[in-house]
Design a protein around this nucleic acid. Sequence first.
RNA 1: UCCCCAGUAGCUCAGUCGGCAGAGCAAUUGGCUGUUAACCAAUGGGUCCGCGGUUCAAGUCCGUGCUGGGGAGCCA
Length: 460
Amino acid sequence: MKRIKIADIWKDQRISGPVLVKGWIRTLRNSKHFSFIELNDGSCLTNIQIIADNTLLNYTDVESLTTGSALAVSGTLRNSPGQGQSVEIHADTITIINKTPDSYPLQKKRHSDEFLRSIAHLRPRSNKYGAMFRIRSHVSMFIHNYFQNKGFFYIHTPVITGSDCEGAGEMFRVSNIKPGQMITQNGKPDFSSDFFGKETNLTVSGQLSAEMFALSLGDVYTFGPTFRAENSNTSRHAAEFWMVEPEMAFCDLTDTMTIAEEFIKYVVKSYLETCQEDFSLFSRFVDTELPHVMNTILSSDFERISYLEAVNILINSGKSFEFKVEFNSDLQSEHERFLSEEYFKKPVFIYNYPKNIKPFYMRMNDDDQTVAAMDLLVPNIGELIGGSQREERLDYLIKRMKDMGLKQEDYWWYIDSRKYGSVPHSGFGLGFERLLMLLTGVTNIRDVIPFPRTPGHIEF
RNA sequence: UCCCCAGUAGCUCAGUCGGCAGAGCAAUUGGCUGUUAACCAAUGGGUCCGCGGUUCAAGUCCGUGCUGGGGAGCCA
């Protein structure tokens, strides 16, 4: 008999009669003449209930099974007389694939996130993390669907890079030289003997590469791992995370905000349609406000205000912030939270930031003081998206690089793109894990990544 | 990196003023005619995070280290 997945049993109400399922025991209840076994195969949240009668040849083995054990069950799918489920399987044979010893750390009761994090190799077997990682897979596909449907091309930008793009934070060096064997000259490391012949790092952004392809294929996006060696110890930062970076030719900052808003709404809508069951777990047990949050995203027009307006709102709010609100400095976390959570109570774009707090590639505005940058702030998460219109004018770009002390020869190919057929173009980066946090109400980034990497943590 | 909080049974936690180490769940054994984190009874289970100190006496007070969590900065 062909094995059937439990998700298909719940999906297709017409299935009945003989079935074969394979999975792991979530819980087992013994009665006098038979046992109830809740079996889960990871295909969906809801278990299938197995009725194991004491007439089974191996019943004494079956009734002593433990949570986590692996079984193959063949039997008959029937309507259930009980309350909690429409159908159940009356087992004809139960093959014990693996009996789990009583040291199995997962129990049928609720565990803390901190404990489950310490057993990251087993936590996807729990309801919550099973749901989380099914959602993570689905949301990945929604992202591809959105861009593919709009004619964007998926670009695989390099993970190993020789350019210190945008000087964004600390980078992880890549080398094949053994520790202590790096040749030095005048006390400085000589990278010419290293694998690539120069200092090499893991990427902190695919943007500069993606720009080259936007200026060739029109609309492109990247979706892949990104690495930051910052010693950040917060619930919103990881050393390895995934980023979505669309880049669009013939597109200005306003267009970009429109696309970002449409994109977020598309993902939320697909999520609510496709992941109803797993979503319900998070809206019941993790954040009961989640349906409301999703509704707000779908039904509201995201606010769009300039940095100047944002600062004025903060100054006139009458709120006493720990950090003073000042022009020409970046907004603090508490400022961002106030704007999205208290003042607007919905996602808000803030655009046109002072040039001195933003990187060289952002397009200078006519006031010569601000650049065409935008951040999307969402309640509970903070910054979900950071983007900008890119500086397409060669003379502006070079002046800006000089002002910021960047060497042109390091960016010769980037500069080339402004010499040859340069056009207005824009893009943004979205933190995939932060999107998952928004969608599930989970407040720690370590709980939306299968095996999270943070400072001092590389287990698993 | 800085600030704050915590660490007691496999898990979640209680432990009063410094005076015999506790509960629920899990495990084991038995009971129970359809259960829904089943229920009932019994049994086993401890480096009270490590090290040092104060004290007649430390899970409890002090110092220090480690681990975990929350917040800040940086950012996505």
